[in-house]
Every structure is written in structure tokens, then in C-alpha cells.
């Protein structure tokens, strides 16, 4: 008989496995039983309107939100039982800039490397590589307040990569980045993914997800409403040719993932604005 540990090693493991995750805040149920499995090496997109539960889901994976029930496994490690081992696998670039205000950015990367167990020498070397890669080397001695919005966003991604993560979680990484840099970032992420890093991306640019992701999940009101490769989702959910294309569909390219997104979430810009206001009130 093969021992359980060897079986565990032989079975292809999911990078992230989320089973029946529920989370409620005082006035709202943010996650209502979410199930997601992201195989190793996949480029996975998580799409949803504002307030759908994307950030709560991502924050749960890194331990910033305590779910009410359900299970999260990261590279086989149960987050609740083995938080250190689970977190060691993840690099996170959250939606909100959360960088020390006045510490020089080279030090920020050096410290981040140390938090993931890199020696000072290794951290300095990796920090230099990443700062050069993201065109931030010239700014290495300034605090984040002296960086433009796009530079801060790139710094967040560089910091997320300091710990050489097996899973990179990017929450709106291209928000505020100009087109040229966005394209550069896309090719960098694709390359990273080709080299084996699993990527979990949330974005409001649906075409970005369509272009980059092997699979996407659409979350709405705390539930996954569709999951699969973009092409399959489009084939399954796109509007029929004879359908009226007014209202929220009037500016949407027929046969696109955006069309599927709007159909499944039923969100117009006005509704999103209302939800945003409600979310701000809750916060």
C-alpha cells in the first residue's frame, strides 16, 4: 500500500483550493459559499462588480479576513492550521496602496524579502533586480509619496515578487497604469506564468482578463456565477444574434467576455455606482 504522504505528493495539487467559503460582515453577507480551485501554473481571473466579494475572497486567502466557515488550502497547506507555510507561497499586490510612507523603496523591498526568509544579501540582490525591471531603480532612495500612481502600483507588484512566490495574487494591478506600461506588465506576467508561477488576477478591465487568463470566475453578490476558460464562457453565455443590444450592452463588443460579464452580473454603471456608495457607507 502507498503511504498517504507519497499519495499526496503524487497527486497533482491545486495551488489554491477554496471550499464552501462563507463570510458575513455586520450588515452584509460578502461570501455565500464560494468554491474555487486553481491548478498550479494557471493564470486565473476573478471578475465581479464592485462589492461582489472579490477583495474579501482575496483577503481571506492571505489571512486578512477571517471566514465564518469553509476551508482554504494553499499549495496543500490548510490556511487555518498552517498559516506560515501557506502564506510563504503567496505574493500579494492588493488594490489599496499599503506601503510605508517614508521608508526608501529599496529598504521596503529589502525588508519584504526578509519577511519571506531571504537573507539581507539575497534581498538586496533581488530588490535591485526588481527595481531595475520595473524602472524604479532611479527612485530607490525616495519614499513612496514621491512616486507617481503608476510607479506606486509597480512597486506593489515588485514587493509582491520579493518572496519568490509560487502564487501571485494581483488585485487590480493595472489600475492607474498607462497603456504602454500596462502592455509591458502583461508580457511580464505572461512570462512569469510560463515559468510556473500561478497567478490570480482581479481586474475591472474585462478584456485584460480575456487576453491573459486561462480561466476566469465571475463572482456576484458573494457567489461564483460562472467559471471556465473565457472562450467557453463566451460560447455558453453570449447574447443571441437577434437579442437587442441597448442599455448596458450598447457599447459592448458582441461575443466578448465583457458581454458575458454584464449578462451574468446584470450590472449597469448606475447600479455599480449605487453599490459603491453602499460599500462606502458600510466601510
Amino acid at each position: 500500500m502507498v503511504p498517504a504522504t507519497i499519495c499526496h505528493l503524487l497527486t497533482p495539487m491545486n495551488a489554491v483550493e477554496i471550499n464552501h467559503l462563507k463570510k458575513s460582515y455586520p450588515n452584509v453577507a460578502a461570501l455565500k459559499g464560494v468554491d474555487v480551485a486553481i491548478p498550479q501554473g494557471e493564470f486565473f481571473g476573478l471578475l465581479g462588480p464592485n462589492g461582489a466579494g472579490k477583495t474579501t475572497l482575496i483577503s481571506s486567502i492571505v489571512g486578512l479576513v477571517k471566514p465564518n466557515s469553509g476551508e482554504i488550502r494553499v499549495m496543500g497547506f490548510e490556511l487555518r492550521k498552517n498559516p506560515r507555510e501557506a502564506k510563504q507561497q503567496i505574493g500579494l499586490s492588493p488594490q489599496e496602496i499599503n506601503i510605508h510612507n517614508y521608508t526608501p523603496i529599496r529598504k521596503i523591498l529589502e525588508f519584504q524579502g526578509g519577511f519571506y526568509g531571504l537573507s539581507k544579501k539575497e534581498s538586496l540582490k533581488r530588490g535591485e533586480e526588481l527595481l531595475k525591471h520595473f524602472s524604479l531603480w532611479e527612485k530607490r532612495n525616495v519614499g513612496r509619496y514621491q512616486l507617481s500612481g503608476g510607479m506606486q502600483r509597480r512597486l506593489m507588484i515588485a514587493r509582491a515578487l520579493m518572496g519568490k512566490p509560487k502564487i501571485l495574487i494581483l488585485d487590480e494591478p493595472t489600475a492607474g497604469i498607462d497603456v504602454e506600461l500596462r502592455h509591458e506588465l502583461w508580457s511580464f506576467l505572461k512570462e512569469l506564468n510560463r515559468n510556473g508561477t500561478t497567478i490570480l488576477l482581479t481586474t475591472h478591465y474585462i478584456e485584460e482578463a480575456e487576453l491573459l487568463c486561462d480561466r476566469v470566475a465571475i463572482i456576484n453578490h458573494g457567489r461564483i456565477v460562472a467559471q471556465g476558460p473565457p472562450k467557453e464562457l463566451i460560447a455558453k453565455h453570449q447574447l443571441k444574434k437577434e437579442s437587442r443590444r441597448d442599455g448596458p450592452f450598447q457599447f459592448v463588443r458582441p461575443g466578448s467576455l465583457e458581454e458575458v460579464f454584464i449578462k451574468l452580473t446584470g450590472h449597469t454603471i448606475e447600479e455599480e455606482a449605487k453599490e459603491e456608495t453602499a460599500e462606502e457607507t458600510r466601510a
Binding site: 492571505v62 489571512g63 486578512l64 498559516p83 506560515r84 507555510e85 502564506k87 510563504q88 503567496i90 500579494l92 492588493p94 489599496e96 496602496i97 499599503n98 506601503i99 510605508h100 519584504q112 519577511f115 519571506y116 526568509g117 514587493r159 518572496g163
Partner: peptide
Amino acid sequence: RSLENLLATP
């Protein structure tokens, strides 16, 4: 919010 980053580390 740098505390959030710290809490997400190992």
C-alpha cells in the same frame, strides 16, 4: 495600511 502587508507575510 502597511500593517496589512505585514499580516499577509509568513
